[in-house]
Design a protein around this nucleic acid. Structure first.
Lengths: 247, 247
DNA sequence: GTCCACAAATTGGTCAGTCCAAATTGGTCT
DNA sequence: AGACCAATTTGGACTGACCAATTTGTGGAC
């Protein structure tokens, strides 16, 4: 059971993101919201504080107003992805672009600042990707471990925080696609070997190139999964429609 | 006059970031904090909610615990930069590295997805940088406008949100350095011209190269300012010490 | 002495009602 | 129309209380 103020906050967030409230518009007063959600005003206040920190609402004595989505915090990405049956395709692609770019940057930084031990840790993290018979979930976890190792080795705090935030909002919303993902074991293994070599030689350019290839693989895999999931959804919708006609 | 719950939150945040509370340690209860700050528990609760959303505290029935800094939100960067007389040099450099990399990515994206009108807007934003006689503040604002135009043209929401968040936390904490910055007008003008040309030809590689040169300029300028500010601070400290001896 | 089960104290989550200061609103006068 | 002022609305803060989950303390069994 999630806390009540979180329920209220999530409802309001969904309302705003679904354009139930337009930017600049005034939100109902805390007292009105308390009545609507059958909650205490304190709980509503905590929910409003959440909205404020997400940059979705500007809250001042006299009234709270909805802010432009571009004014929001990075933390709204998860909520945006969480809407609808499938996460928004464009946003998913945008997140991938950013994550991959940051990953390449982190690798570049790591090559120059990381200790030999940390480079060795990254190389260790590439090992599981050699294995052809890893399950989808295990393979995804292995890739995540690699990502994490690179980020830590970059010794760049903002970089780590951004990657963590993006990933933690991204991953849970991709679970609905997970069953449709077909892991390209051979492709990843090939990439893992190249990365290992580049790391060993501390070759920044080669590392960046490899990570860009890695990104391409990830993206293609996800696009395929997306198409499959979309077909499945459409079929389900058709079936439901036919049943409705038969009734 | 800032709100009381914000004061409480800021004090607690500073305590945590200054290692007043170690990771894993339990924070005082809301009731104790209310007594300490001579405030209502409701106000303390709102402050705690801030800490939670910053990822600094894990707050559960039974007690709140301090979280690892690596678990925090990107929004703590501003608080980290705000400590001490001068912002932490390493963190400043890290932020610069990330911002510049994102800027290059945004430019690359913009080249491929932006409309002709948006490209034109970016080119317009480069114009002020041609002028040799712009004041430091005006020049900084002009650079910011350019950054903003590129981000918008990238049409990548997460990218925009990250850049906005980083910049808004970064800028106010650089004001203490502002007086020591010597703007390299000639360098910027040179870069602006190259960028303009690359944009006109929609040459992604050239745009990225130009932005990397731009980043280098920015970084060198800030390092110089840092050294100057550090010297000024040291001298002030020495003067104070001598005065103390004379008393 | 160690471990475990149970009761007591602590703590966060929620609620009701009240007061205050800032902002908004609506009417009035010019 | 536009400027000004009072009434209302709204967020910020406070007091005091209750509940459920967790933690902590205590005692007994091994």
């Amino acid at each position: 059971m999630t806390a009540k103020h979180d329920q209220i906050a999530n409802t309001l967030i969904a309302d705003i993101l679904d354009d139930g409230y337009r930017a600049g518009e005034r939100l109902p007063s805390e007292r009105d919201l308390a009545a609507r959600f059958q909650a205490n005003r304190g709980a509503v206040r905590e929910a409003m504080k959440t909205l404020q920190q997400l940059g979705l609402a500007d809250i001042q004595p006299g009234g709270a107003r909805v802010q432009q989505r571009e004014q929001a915090s990075l933390d709204i990405i998860g909520h945006i992805l969480g809407r609808g049956d499938l996460p928004d395709r464009n946003v998913v692609d945008q997140v991938l672009v950013v994550i991959n770019n940051l990953l390449a940057l982190a690798a570049e930084q790591a090559i120059t600042v990381a200790s030999d031990e940390q480079i060795e840790e990254i190389r260790q993290a590439t090992r599981p990707l050699y294995q052809q018979q890893l399950g989808h979930v295990e393979h995804a976890l292995a890739r995540f471990s690699l990502l994490r190792a690179v980020m830590v080795a970059s010794k760049n705090l903002p970089l780590q925080l951004i990657a963590k935030s993006l990933f933690e909002q991204f991953a849970p919303n991709m679970e609905s696609l997970a069953v449709f993902v077909e892991t390209d074991h051979t492709g990843y293994a090939d990439y893992a070997r190249k990365l290992d070599g580049a790391l060993q030689g501390r070759n920044a350019a080669a590392v960046r190139r490899t990570f860009e290839a890695f990104a391409k693989l990830n993206r293609e895999s996800l696009i395929k999964a997306y198409n499959a999931a979309q077909h499945a959804l459409d079929n389900a919708a058709n079936t439901q429609a036919k049943e409705a006609v038969n009734r």
